[in-house]
């Protein structure tokens, strides 16, 4: 009886899952495999082979990849420094890196749009020091920049957490056995933070791959990611069938990339994001 009562506590969440996740997913799947008339078809799925869609998907993969690499290269050394030096306000410094997450996502991106524009603050500074104005907005670079800015905390948090869990004794034991700092990093610290790295990669790569708002605002319609294509099919083309078909393909790519990464994660720490 007690068990049953406890299970009821999951009720509101289950309703939420059913109404707002499973049901929409069923709709997407239905639209993806049907025509306007309601007949079964695979053409919405195979539409990904259309050169325009292939180009967008490849661009999404490319920018998502670069965004993830840059985030990793920024976050890992930062976490090393944060976890190694035990200064007094360590958690406050971590908090500073998380702080942007508390501001509205759209607001942050719009702010960068103003900063990066041809007549923006950064270009004015460039002109002042004699570099001249550089076209930064509406390029692939500005889109990657926006993604990195937005998703960096998702890389920092899991890596920092896994690094904070490393027992100080283990690092000292490695040094004691003759390991220099580089060997300690390669043989001890990186393997022990692998699950954090994988969590971070998934948490950055997946939203970067499916992003469309950042490319819209910082790419100015010139950087067409697969997310933008899907959005246009739904909102402008009103072609829900094609939009759903492309969404399903994108979902397959997301699941495949997560499964691929999970192979490297032996101790299963990264499975938390599944």
């Amino acid at each position: 009886m007690y068990r049953l009562k406890r299970q009821f506590l999951a009720g509101p969440y289950l309703l939420w899952v059913a109404g707002f996740i499973l049901l929409p997913l069923a709709f997407i799947l239905y639209y993806a495999f049907t025509t306007d008339g309601g007949g079964f078809t695979l053409s919405q799925i195979t539409a990904i082979a259309d050169p325009v869609h292939v180009k967008s998907l490849l661009l999404s993969l490319k920018l998502g990849f670069f965004c993830t690499v840059v985030c990793l290269l920024l976050a890992y050394p930062l976490c090393l420094i944060l976890s190694r030096f035990h200064f007094r306000h360590q958690s406050f410094v971590v908090f500073l890196f998380i702080l942007p997450m508390w501001m509205n996502f759209m607001l942050r991106i719009l702010a960068w749009r103003l900063l990066l524009s041809n007549s923006g603050l950064i270009n004015s500074l460039f002109e002042l020091v004699g570099i001249g104005r550089v076209k930064m907005l509406n390029t692939q670079l500005s889109v990657v920049f926006g993604m990195v800015y937005d998703f960096l905390p998702f890389m920092v948090l899991p890596i920092y957490n896994s690094m904070a869990r490393i027992n100080k004794d283990v690092v000292e034991a490695a040094k004691d056995l003759g390991a220099n700092s580089l060997t300690v990093l390669v043989k001890i610290v990186i393997p022990l933070t692998l699950s954090g790295i994988i969590s971070g990669i998934i948490m950055v790569f997946v939203p970067a791959l499916t992003s469309f708002v950042i490319s819209d605002l910082l790419g100015g319609g010139k950087v067409l990611l697969i997310g933008n294509v899907i959005e246009q099919e739904f909102m402008q083309g009103m072609n829900w069938h094609l939009g759903s078909g492309l969404s399903v393909v994108l979902m397959v790519f997301v699941i495949a990339s997560m499964a691929l990464l999970n192979i490297f994660d032996k101790d299963g720490g990264g499975a938390a994001v599944w």
Partner: peptide, 12 residues
């Protein structure tokens, strides 16, 4: 070489 109180073996 040192033997630590909490063993400090490499878990991986």
């Amino acid at each position: 070489n040192t033997v630590f109180q909490k063993y400090a073996l490499f878990p991986h």
